[in-house]
């Protein structure tokens, strides 16, 4: 069977700096894949390669192939906006727009041509329900999003990403700025979401990777050291560097 996301011999350069070296991994559909590794090892860079957010950084150069569902996403004819619509992203810092809760969630659908209040209302409710935020905000959707707590803001960002009906959800250390209870809520949420979405998450927190993911990829200095089903990687790592990292000897 063809893997859902297929990354083959990927090299990425920021100007002179060689940020990703010969990365080849496969990411399965409807499961959570976690990227772990010390800071600056390239895990966020790889994540941003998947929805071509690196295009925004001048001087980025890419070699190799990234295919999603069999299509090379760096092919000239790929429409980047449509690609990003299919791949939602949640960032490290909660970044809701300085607008109302409703307008935040409705933003994506409006950009993609959804019209009509009834249709939008429906999308907003469904997305907020999927992000388990609906019950907390349903009484006043016109409230400024920035008046929510950090954890609520992050779930709002998830709802906003889900509103454009993506197939893949990228989470870039989405819980690292949150308190333990909010983190727990978001981890629970990802358990629900993985039945409908393919989730790729970058995390600093190895316990988090062990708790929530089905597959884990370990990065070091821009290279993939090892990737395997999560349980196996943590119980029985093949590479001694993985062993050192997960037992807390560095990083």
């Amino acid at each position: 069977m063809q893997p859902f996301i297929d990354i083959n011999k990927l090299n990425l350069y920021y100007g002179e700096y060689h940020a990703l070296k010969d990365v080849s991994i496969e990411i399965p559909e409807r499961a959570i894949t976690a990227f772990i590794g010390p800071s600056g090892c390239g895990k966020s860079t790889l994540l941003r390669t998947l929805n071509r957010m690196n295009d925004r950084i001048p001087g980025t150069r890419i070699e190799g192939k990234v295919a999603i569902g069999g299509t090379d996403i760096y092919h000239d004819e790929v429409h980047v906006e449509s690609l990003r619509q299919k791949i939602g992203m949640v960032f490290q810092q909660p970044n809701p727009f300085p607008k109302s809760i409703y307008d935040n969630v409705a933003f994506g659908p409006k950009q993609h041509g959804v019209r009509g209040k009834k249709k939008l209302d429906e999308i907003v409710e469904q997305s907020l329900r999927s992000a388990v935020l609906w019950d907390e905000v349903k009484d006043d959707l016109k409230r400024p999003a920035l008046s929510l707590s950090g954890g609520q803001q992050q779930r709002l960002c998830i709802a906003r990403a889900l509103a454009v009906e993506p197939d893949i959800l990228l989470m870039d250390e989405a819980t690292s700025a949150l308190d333990p209870i909010s983190t727990f809520k978001i981890e629970e949420l990802t358990h629900e979401l993985k039945n409908r979405y393919t989730i790729v998450m970058v995390t600093h927190n190895m316990q988090q990777a062990a708790r929530v993911s089905q597959q884990t990829v370990f990065f070091l200095n821009g290279e993939v050291v090892e990737y395997a089903p999560t349980q196996r990687l943590f119980a029985n790592p093949a590479d001694s560097r993985t062993q050192d990292y997960i037992s807390g000897r560095f990083g």
């Binding site: 929805n51 957010m53 925004r56 906006e81 810092q93 950009q111 454009v164």
Partner: peptide
């Protein structure tokens, strides 16, 4: 802040939409 632009682009907005709406 750039984080607003990132959010808009990640949702599939183009540059024009990002500038006007965000």
């Amino acid at each position: 802040p750039n984080k607003y632009r990132d959010a808009a682009y990640a949702l599939g907005a183009n540059r024009f939409q990002t500038v006007i709406r965000v």
